[in-house]
Design a protein around this nucleic acid. Sequence first.
DNA 1: CCTCTTAGTGCACGAGTGTTCACAATCTGT
DNA 2: ACAGATTGTGAACACTCGTGCACTAAGAGG
Lengths: 194, 194
Amino acid sequence: MDGGYGFDSLSLRRVARAAGVVPTAFYRHFDSMDELGLALVEESVATLRAMLREAREGGAAADPSGLIRRSVEILVAHVREHRRHFAFMAHARASGNAVLRHAIRSETKLFASELATDIARLPILRDWSTADLQMLAALFVDTMIATIDAILEASSSGAGPEGLSPEAETRIVAQAEKQLRLIALAIPQWRSSP
Amino acid sequence: MDGGYGFDSLSLRRVARAAGVVPTAFYRHFDSMDELGLALVEESVATLRAMLREAREGGAAADPSGLIRRSVEILVAHVREHRRHFAFMAHARASGNAVLRHAIRSETKLFASELATDIARLPILRDWSTADLQMLAALFVDTMIATIDAILEASSSGAGPEGLSPEAETRIVAQAEKQLRLIALAIPQWRSSP
DNA sequence: CCTCTTAGTGCACGAGTGTTCACAATCTGT
DNA sequence: ACAGATTGTGAACACTCGTGCACTAAGAGG
């Protein structure tokens, strides 16, 4: 009856079985399931940081439209290449496991903060208050997360074995780009009030 | 060791125990846990629909800023009043249970579609393509969902027994309003290309 | 009142779970 | 090659879990 999807329907014994090892040997490597989860979070976060680095290098672009297109491309490339990591975090984000949930939430906040200081360098945002920069960064991050969710869902419910239908991905990516471009369009109109 | 949070760490036996009934009596009411979950989804969706109705009645407002403020107020009021329903859906949305996950995802899409046809009546959006309206509605819905997530997380990790710290809620609400106002600011700038 | 449906009971089974403990193998550095 | 750490083993414990089955209490309609 079990055989569930996410991390919290994953038992110590199943992990041991998959590792080709007797259950008790698990304790030689982790004190508890929570610590395994935290290790996975760390590994996945490393993936995210690599993505951010790549995006930053491709940044400082001339036209904003190109920057958005490029960022989304990097995003979907990473999701496709590290599907397991993203799926794990997307699930654990709303998981029943409080430890994992909070770890991921705080990591997400940190991520948004870094993005905020990143975009603070852009000339258009020169005289925005820090609070407003945080708000903008959070909006970007939330939109990205929603996009990731959409990709993961489309690829899991799709017919394909591992990959998602190309049309679905194209549709999702196109919408994400539109949304980000729309937000960018609002930036010059905003009067930042601290 | 268990005692997890969400629906998928909820066993048939625990439900029966909480109902003051022997486990096998569960089957007199539901064929499986999945059906219980679907019933809960239906109930929660009814709550959402009530919220939409209320928002629609308060809609057709003169100034857009007032509309946003009012919508967010209605949102947080409903979340506070039906915390259980929102928490259930927020969790099941990324749950390990595929049946619930898909039920909620499709309900969310339907929700976004309804919002799209709703805002299509606004004069400012008169000559937007339907695809662009969907994209805008999805952006609004995703932002709302992110806000709900933030409220739920703040209220669960907070010190309070049931309620969240008022400052945290104020901060979240203020940010959500800013984000929605920012998006609204972009609307006149968008040139809709079908 | 008697029948029929609905809701609840008790028991039992097989399977899966986390964790403990003493023990064996294997790998490492000197 | 030998001592010490690291990693793996096997059996056992005390659970929880979903589910099948025959049986009973309770209420509804004729």
